[in-house]
Computed example of a mutant assay.
Amino acid sequence: MAARKEKPKLAALDALEPPPRRNRLNFFELAYERIEAMLIDCTLKPGRLLTMQDLQDMTGFGRTPIHHAVNRLSADTLITIRPRHGLQIAPIDLARERVLLKLRRDLERFVARLAAERAGPMHRNQMLHMARLLRDRRESLTLAEFNGLDRRIDQMILSTAGEPFLEHTLRPLHTIFRRIGSIYHSHMPGQHSLDGTVDAHLALLNGIASSQPERAIAASDGLIAFVERMFDEMEETIDPSLLDSSVEPLLPH
Score class of each variant (00 low, 15 high):
37 A>W: 01
51 T>D: 05
30 L>S: 14
230 M>T: 14
68 H>Q: 09
247 V>N: 10
29 E>N: 08
198 V>N: 14
204 L>H: 09
169 T>P: 07
97 E>T: 04
133 L>M: 05
98 R>W: 04
192 H>F: 14
190 G>N: 10
216 A>P: 13
31 A>F: 00
137 R>N: 13
225 A>H: 11
208 I>M: 13
79 I>F: 00
55 L>A: 00
21 R>I: 12
246 S>P: 02
82 R>I: 12
138 R>N: 07
55 L>V: 03
5 K>W: 15
133 L>V: 05
55 L>E: 04
126 Q>M: 05
146 F>H: 13
234 M>S: 11
112 A>H: 03
52 M>L: 07
208 I>D: 14
58 M>S: 08
101 L>M: 07
165 F>W: 06
85 H>E: 13
13 L>M: 10
24 R>G: 05
142 T>S: 15
253 H>K: 10
134 L>D: 01
215 R>D: 15
144 A>L: 14
141 L>H: 00
163 E>L: 03
134 L>V: 02
14 D>F: 07
115 A>P: 11
187 H>Y: 15
86 G>N: 08
176 I>G: 02
110 F>Q: 06
125 N>R: 07
92 I>C: 03
13 L>S: 01
114 L>M: 12
103 L>A: 06
241 S>V: 11
91 P>E: 04
25 L>C: 06
26 N>I: 08
139 E>A: 11
231 F>A: 06
120 G>S: 05
216 A>R: 05
178 R>K: 14
198 V>Q: 15
214 E>G: 08
226 F>R: 09
78 L>P: 01
69 A>T: 03
252 P>M: 06
205 L>R: 04
113 R>D: 00
9 K>Y: 14
191 Q>G: 04
